[in-house]
């Protein structure tokens, strides 16, 4: 806190606002923007990995594997993602605890589900009840990341599945003519060539992912939505040095502006990446670039 802020009652106008916006709780609010960025930074590659796995499975020649891949892709389509989020956060938690329970307490003879309770032995609890607070918070965040990765992995799988099929057949045949094995063709031709076809879908997915980040709030993480509600609510002089009315509307306006700026910047960056990837490709975009250069 700045030294000028020691007596908030005496402050007025801009000075008051400056002091108000630098309180400890506001600092926590600003850090939570970092949480959102961290979530995106971890989730995007994780979802891409899930998506890649899903796409490869859906392409598999072994029927059951292909079914699993296709089901994974198809099921996300019919159901709201929010339902998946709320489901997975509890389901994953219980699944992990159950697995640990099986491993650590083999001679436990009571049922896991007793009426309306889910009971595992104390050693199997995740995180352990003795663990410090930060472990609990990290575990909650990790569960959220995994949930996001599973849901958006399905979307990514669909995009990549389509992109792999869009790579011109002639390029694959050329690779075969050069005597490459199936594995070599996949690694050296299919995967490098598919990105230009995948990028429009993946950019779209990135935008959807950005706009899904406020759902972290529903998964119990102290994110920007949590803090905006917390800080914006009416504050009376008894509990704070900076009393104010119901300002939640303004806090959420700030979040709206943040997201608008974020999506705008992403749009510009993605357009540049697309221009880079299009270079020399046998697509309409690549053709346009060649004509412009000539």
């Amino acid at each position: 806190m700045m030294p000028a802020c020691t007596d908030p009652d005496a402050l007025e106008g801009l000075a008051w606002l400056a002091c108000y916006l630098t309180t400890g709780k506001h600092m926590a609010f600003y850090t939570s923007f970092g949480t959102v960025l961290l979530l995106l930074a971890i989730t995007a590659p994780a979802a891409l990995a899930f998506g890649f796995g899903g796409a490869v499975m859906a392409r598999s020649r072994i029927a059951p594997v292909s079914w699993i891949g296709r089901t994974y892709i198809a099921i996300v389509r019919g159901v709201p993602d929010i339902a998946f989020f709320l489901f997975f956060v509890i389901a994953l938690d219980q699944a992990f605890e159950w697995l640990r329970h099986q491993a650590k307490c083999p001679d436990w003879d009571q049922p896991i589900r007793q009426g309306n309770d889910f009971v595992v032995c104390a050693e199997a609890k995740l995180p352990l009840s003795t663990a410090p607070q930060w472990v609990h918070e990290t575990y909650g965040f990790a569960l959220a990341v995994l949930t996001f990765a599973i849901v958006f992995g399905a979307f990514a799988a669909n995009v990549l599945y389509g992109a792999m099929r869009a790579v011109p057949r002639a390029q694959i045949e050329t690779a075969e003519a050069y005597g490459m094995t199936e594995r070599q063709t996949f690694r050296r031709i299919l995967v490098p060539q598919m990105w230009v076809y995948a990028l429009p879908g993946l950019s779209n997915l990135w935008m959807v992912l950005i706009k899904a980040t406020p759902l972290l709030f529903l998964l119990g993480v102290r994110d920007i939505v949590y803090w905006a509600r917390e800080l914006g609510g009416t504050k009376t002089p008894q509990f704070t040095d900076y009393p104010h009315g119901d300002w939640r509307m303004w806090y959420f306006l700030a979040l709206l502006v943040f997201y608008l700026a974020f999506t705008k910047v992403s749009e510009v960056v993605l357009a540049r990446i697309m221009a880079r990837l299009t270079k020399g490709q046998a697509t309409a975009g690549g053709e346009a670039q060649r004509k412009a250069a000539a």
Binding site: K211, P214, V225, F252, L260, K264
Partner: peptide, 21 residues
């Protein structure tokens, strides 16, 4: 741009609190 560039979730919150005010 306004409605496609921002999350629906935040739009709901903003609208609710705006109507409340």
């Amino acid at each position: 741009f306004l409605f496609r560039g921002s999350p629906l979730f935040i739009q709901f919150f903003f609208a609710y609190f705006a109507f409340l005010s």
